[in-house]
Design a protein around this nucleic acid. Structure first.
Length: 867
RNA sequence: GCCGAAGUGGUGGAAUUGGUAGACACGCUAGACUUAGGAUCUAGUACCGCGAGGUGUGGAGGUUCAAGUCCUCUCUUCGGUACCA
C-alpha cells in the first residue's frame, strides 16, 4: 500500500475539482449571512515570497473555516500594480513598466493558484488598468469640486544632476542613489487631499474600533496627534503686523524671551528687509532649503538659526523680544512660528545658550528651586508661577487657563486645538501611476477634465527617461490639451500622477462589483458585502494605508455614496517575516541565491567571488533582496505542508525570522496522519462514528480518547475563531494524533473503534482549512460524498469535555513539592487533608505547623501551604 | 528624536482571569526495525549538582501565600516616521 502522501498528484487533482465545480465563486445571497475577508493585496514585484504565503494562508484558513460555518464568504485577490519599483525595473532591464508589471502578475497569480488559496478569481483587479483608475479619477474630480482636493506649493527631493524628483527611499544619506549628487529641496505646486478636515472624526472613532488591535489605534491617535493649547498673537515691533504662534504651554508666555520662525515662513523675508541682516538671513534660508524638512529630517541637523533683525512684543510682558529664523521650526506644524521659552523647553534652552539669549524662569518646581543663571537644562514639569505678574503664586495648570483668558480679553490669544496630522500630498512626478485628471488653462486656470472624457489613460507606449524621470511632460499628444471650458488649444494637461496609496484606499469596495461600468461600485453590491469583516495584513501599514482608507470612506460617506465610515470591522496585523540582508561591495544587495556559503561560514558573491557582508535581520522586501521564494518548498513538500509550516512557525501577529528548520516536522506530521488514516480506513470500513455523550461509554480507553477528541475540537475552534492562533490549534491536533498512535488498532473494543472513527473524521474536518488538498483526498478515501468544503464545521459536546480525575499540585511557600491525583468532585477538605498528609509535604514542613493553607480550584487544582 | 511593538531551553514557540514555566515541534543523544535510511517506531533532553537540592522567562528593584503574567526604572532588537509598498 501507498505509505507516503504525494502532493504532486493529489494537489492538482483537487485544485482542478474546485475550479471545475466553481466552489470559490460567490454571489450576493440574501438568505445567507455574508462574511468579507480580505488580505492586503500584493505589489506585483516579481514572485510571491514567504511573507505573502504567511499572510494569505492565514486568510485562507479563516475563509475556509467560515464557509464550513455556513457563511457566504467573499475572498478576492488583486494587484496594487502602480508604483516605483516598476519604473526602476524598466530602467534596469530595458523593458516597459507595464510589460514588467503584467508579467509579474501572471507569474504571481500562478503561484497563488498553486498554493490552493480559495479566491474568487473572477473578481481579480489590477489598479493599473484604466477600468480601475477611471473611477479614482472620477472621485478626484468630485473631491476637487467639493474643495476636498486643492493645490499648494511644497517641497520635493530633487537631484540636479539627474533632473528628477526622488522618493525618500532614493535618497541615501542626503545623496541621490543613482549619481551620489547631494539632494536638494525643490518647491513645486502639488495636489493635496484635505484629510485634516476629518482629523477629529478619525481620532474619535479610534476608540470605536473594538475589532482592531490597540497598538494600531494608539499609533493612529498619536499620528493624528491632537494637542490642546492656545494661539497667541505677538505684534511686530514698529509695525501693525502680527505673528501668531501655537503653544501648548500658554502658562510660560512670561518666559518667552525670543521667537523663532520656520525658514519658509512668509514673514522671514519681509522682517529682515532693511535691517542689515537681510543677506545673512537669505543665505541661511538657502542653506536650510538643502536640508530635509520633516520631523525626522530636522533631527539630523544641528539646531541653528539667525536673527532676522526684527523684534516683536511679548503680549504678556510688553517687552521687545528678538525674532529669529531657525531650522528646527517646521512650517507645517502649528503656524510655522514658535514663542521660545528657554527655561521651559530643552530645544529653546539649547538655542538660547548657543546664541546667548535671555533665560527667565517662570515655572518653579516645588522641591528644588531653579535659577536662570545656574540651571543646566530646561524644566518642563509642573510648578508654581514666578516672574509672571498677577499670576505669581498660582500653580501652572490653573495659570494655563487664566493667562489664555487674560490674553483673550486683550485680543491677543484664544484657545485652540491643533493636530499633528498634515494634509495628504498625492502628486507624484512619476510615470507609472494614475494621471491626475485636470487641465491647466492660461485663461481659466485649473479645470477638471469632463467626466465623459474619463479615463485619462496613461500612455503605455512611452519610455521612461534614462535617469528615472517621467516622460509625460514631454509627450505632446498627452500633455497638450484643449481647455474644456473656453476651448483654448494651448492648455496643458497635468502630468503628475497620483500616489499609489490612493488606489489602495478603496480597492476593497471595487471587489464587490469589479466589472461595474456605471460608477466606482454597484451600490447594491456594497449594501450586501461592505464593510470588510476581517482585514489581514502587515503591521507596517498600521498608520498610512489604514488611515488613508478610513479617510476615503469618510469622503465617500460625505458624498452620500456609502452609509458607513469605517472600512474594516476587524483587523489582524500580521507580524513581518524577516531575514538578514546580504551585500556585496561590488554588486550591492544580493538575493540569497546569489551568495554561496564557504567552508568557514562566510559567503561569497556568485557574480564576482567578493566577500559578502551579512546585514541585520529585517523585514523581507524586494528592494533589499532578502526575500525567500516559496517555490523550492512547494516543489519539495507541496502546498499543504508549506501552508501548515507557515502557520505552525509562530502566531500570526508575531514577527518571524525566516528559517526552514522545522519544515520536516510539518511534513512528518502530515505523513503520520496519512498513514493513520489509511490504516483506519482499511480496518474500520462500515463502522459509524460515536457521537453521543462521553458518559455513555463503558470502555475506559474509549471514554478517555473521546474526551480528548472533544477537547481538541473545542481548542481548535476557539483558536481559529477567537485568536487566530493556528500554531496552538495545530499542536492540539498533533496531541490527539499522538494519543491515537499509542492505541492498538487491532483491538476488539467496539466502543473504541467507533471513537477512533469519530476522531479520524473530525481530524480531517479540523485540518481541512489548513491542509485542504490532503483532507479532500482522505475524505474521499473515507468514502464520504462531496467536498470537505461543503461539510459543517464540527461542534463539540459541552457534556463531554471534563475528565473524571484531576491533578492536584501541592506547594510549600510557593514552591512545588508534591502532586497527586484526586476525583474531580472531591471536597476541598479532602484535598487539603490529602495534601497535608503527603509524605514529601510532611518532610518539607519539618514538623512546623502551617500558618495558612490556600486551596485553589480553578483551571488547576492547587494547594499552597505557608509556613 | 518621536510613536508602536518584541525579548522565555541549542532553535521555533506554549502557558484565558497572577496558580505545575518549557505544551507541540525542530535539533541532539540512545535504542529498535532494516541490505540500506535523509523512512518509521520507542525513550531521554532548561541549567548546575552523584544526590538531597538549588537556579531559572533581557537586566535591576517592588507588590503578593504565589509573578513570564501586575508596578517602577533600564538595556537590546524590530516596525513606522507622511514620495518603498
Amino acid at each position: 500500500m501507498e505509505q507516503r502522501y504525494h502532493p504532486e498528484s493529489v494537489e492538482p487533482k483537487w485544485q482542478e475539482y474546485w475550479n471545475k465545480n466553481q466552489l470559490f465563486k460567490v454571489q450576493e445571497d440574501s438568505s445567507k449571512e455574508k462574511y468579507y475577508l480580505l488580505e492586503m493585496f500584493p505589489y506585483p514585484s516579481g514572485k510571491i515570497h514567504i511573507g505573502h504565503v504567511r499572510n494569505y494562508t492565514i486568510g485562507d484558513v479563516v475563509v475556509r473555516y467560515k464557509r464550513m460555518k455556513g457563511y457566504n464568504v467573499l475572498h478576492p485577490m488583486g494587484w496594487d500594480a502602480f508604483g516605483m519599483p516598476a519604473e526602476n525595473a524598466a530602467i534596469d532591464n530595458n523593458t516597459h513598466p507595464a510589460a514588467w508589471t503584467y508579467d509579474n502578475i501572471s507569474a504571481m497569480r500562478a503561484q497563488l493558484k498553486k498554493m490552493g488559496f480559495s479566491y474568487d478569481w473572477d473578481r481579480e483587479i489590477a489598479t493599473c488598468r484604466p477600468e480601475y483608475y477611471k473611477w479614482e479619477q472620477w472621485l478626484f474630480i468630485q473631491m476637487l469640486k467639493k474643495g476636498m482636493a486643492y493645490r499648494k506649493e511644497s517641497y520635493v527631493n530633487w537631484c540636479e544632476k539627474c533632473q528628477t524628483v526622488l522618493a525618500n527611499e532614493q535618497v541615501e544619506q542626503d545623496k541621490c542613489w543613482r549619481c551620489s549628487q547631494t539632494v536638494q529641496q525643490k518647491k513645486l505646486w502639488q495636489w493635496f487631499f484635505k484629510i485634516t478636515d476629518y482629523a477629529q472624526d478619525l481620532l474619535v472613532h479610534c476608540d470605536k474600533l473594538p475589532g482592531w488591535p490597540d497598538k494600531v489605534t494608539v499609533m493612529q491617535k498619536n499620528w493624528i496627534g491632537q494637542s490642546v493649547g492656545s494661539e497667541l498673537t505677538f505684534q511686530v515691533d514698529g509695525s501693525d503686523e502680527n505673528i501668531v504662534v501655537f503653544t501648548t504651554r500658554p502658562d510660560t508666555v512670561f518666559g518667552a524671551t525670543f521667537m523663532c520662525l520656520a525658514p519658509e515662513h512668509p514673514m522671514v523675508e519681509t522682517l529682515s528687509k532693511g535691517t542689515g541682516n537681510e543677506e545673512e538671513v537669505a543665505a541661511f534660508v538657502q542653506k536650510v532649503s538643502r536640508q530635509e524638512r520633516s520631523a525626522e529630517g530636522i533631527e539630523k541637523y544641528e539646531k541653528e538659526g539667525v536673527f532676522t533683525g526684527a523684534c516683536c512684543i511679548n503680549p504678556a510682558t510688553g517687552e521687545k523680544i528678538p525674532v529669529y529664523t531657525a531650522n528646527f521650526v517646521l512650517m507645517e506644524y502649528g503656524t510655522g512660528a514658535i514663542m521660545s521659552v528657554p527655561a521651559g523647553d530643552q530645544r529653546d534652552f539649547d538655542f538660547a545658550k548657543k546664541y546667548d539669549l535671555n533665560i527667565r524662569v517662570v515655572v518653579q518646581p516645588e522641591d528644588v528651586p531653579i535659577d536662570s543663571d545656574t540651571m543646566s537644562e530646561a524644566y518642563t514639569g509642573e510648578g508654581v508661577m514666578v516672574n509672571s505678574g498677577e499670576f505669581n503664586g498660582m500653580d501652572n495648570k490653573t495659570a494655563m487657563e487664566k493667562i489664555t483668558d487674560w490674553l483673550e480679553e486683550k485680543g491677543r490669544g484664544k484657545k485652540t486645538i491643533s493636530y499633528r496630522l498634515r494634509d495628504w500630498g498625492i502628486s507624484r512626478q512619476r510615470y507609472w501611476g494614475a494621471p491626475i485628471p485636470v487641465i491647466h488653462c492660461p485663461d481659466c486656470g485649473v479645470v477638471p477634465v469632463p467626466e465623459s472624457d474619463l479615463p485619462i489613460k496613461l500612455p503605455e507606449d512611452a519610455n521612461l527617461l534614462e535617469k528615472g524621470g517621467s516622460p509625460l511632460p514631454k509627450l505632446d499628444y498627452f500633455a497638450k490639451a484643449t481647455c474644456p471650458t473656453c476651448g483654448r488649444e494651448d492648455a496643458q494637461r497635468d502630468t503628475d500622477t497620483m500616489d499609489t496609496f490612493v488606489e489602495s484606499s478603496w480597492y476593497y469596495l471595487r471587489y464587490c462589483s469589479p466589472r461595474f461600468t456605471e460608477g466606482m461600485f454597484d451600490p447594491e453590491a456594497i449594501k450586501y458585502w461592505a464593510p470588510v469583516d476581517q482585514y489581514i495584513g502587515g503591521v507596517e501599514h498600521a498608520v498610512l494605508h489604514l488611515l488613508y482608507s478610513r479617510y476615503f470612506m469618510r469622503v465617500l460617506n460625505t458624498l452620500g455614496m456609502i452609509d458607513f465610515k469605517e472600512p474594516f470591522t476587524r483587523l489582524l496585523t500580521q507580524g513581518m517575516v524577516c531575514k538578514e540582508t546580504m551585500t556585496c561591495p561590488e554588486h550591492g544587495y544580493l538575493f540569497p541565491e546569489e551568495a554561496v556559503k564557504n567552508e568557514d561560514g562566510t559567503f561569497s558573491c556568485t557574480k564576482c567571488s567578493g566577500e559578502v557582508e551579512i546585514g541585520r535581520v529585517i523585514k523581507m522586501s524586494k528592494s533589499k533582496k532578502n526575500v525567500v521564494d516559496p517555490n523550492e518548498l512547494l516543489e519539495k513538500y507541496g502546498a499543504d505542508v508549506t501552508r501548515l509550516f507557515s502557520l505552525f512557525a509562530a502566531p500570526p501577529e508575531r514577527d518571524l525570522e525566516w528559517s526552514e528548520d522545522g519544515v520536516e516536522g510539518s511534513n512528518r506530521f502530515v505523513n503520520r496522519v496519512w498513514r493513520l488514516a489509511l490504516d483506519c480506513i482499511e480496518k474500520y470500513k462500515g463502522i459509524d462514528p460515536y457521537t453521543e455523550a462521553a458518559s455513555g461509554l463503558k470502555s475506559k480507553p474509549a471514554k478517555e480518547l473521546y474526551i480528548k477528541a472533544q477537547q481538541t475540537i473545542k481548542k481548535v475552534t476557539d483558536d481559529i475563531d477567537k485568536s487566530f492562533h493556528f500554531n496552538t490549534a495545530i499542536s492540539a491536533v498533533m496531541e490527539l494524533v499522538n494519543v491515537m498512535y499509542t492505541l492498538d488498532l487491532e483491538t476488539d473494543d467496539n466502543e473504541l473503534k467507533q471513537v477512533i472513527v469519530f476522531c479520524l473524521e473530525n481530524i480531517l474536518l479540523l485540518l481541512s482549512p489548513i491542509l485542504p488538498h490532503f483532507c479532500e483526498e482522505l475524505f474521499e478515501r473515507l468514502g464520504r460524498e462531496g467536498s470537505v468544503l461543503e461539510q459543517s464545521w464540527p461542534e463539540y459536546r459541552e457534556d463531554s469535555l471534563k475528565t473524571d480525575e484531576v491533578l492536584v499540585v501541592v506547594q510549600v511557600n510557593g514552591k512545588l513539592r508534591a502532586k497527586f491525583s484526586a476525583a474531580a468532585d472531591s471536597d476541598e477538605d479532602v484535598i487539603r487533608d490529602t495534601a497535608l498528609a503527603d509524605e514529601k509535604i510532611q518532610k518539607h514542613l519539618g514538623g512546623k505547623t502551617p500558618k495558612k493553607v490556600i486551596v485553589i480550584r480553578k483551571k488547576q487544582t492547587l494547594v499552597n501551604i505557608v509556613v
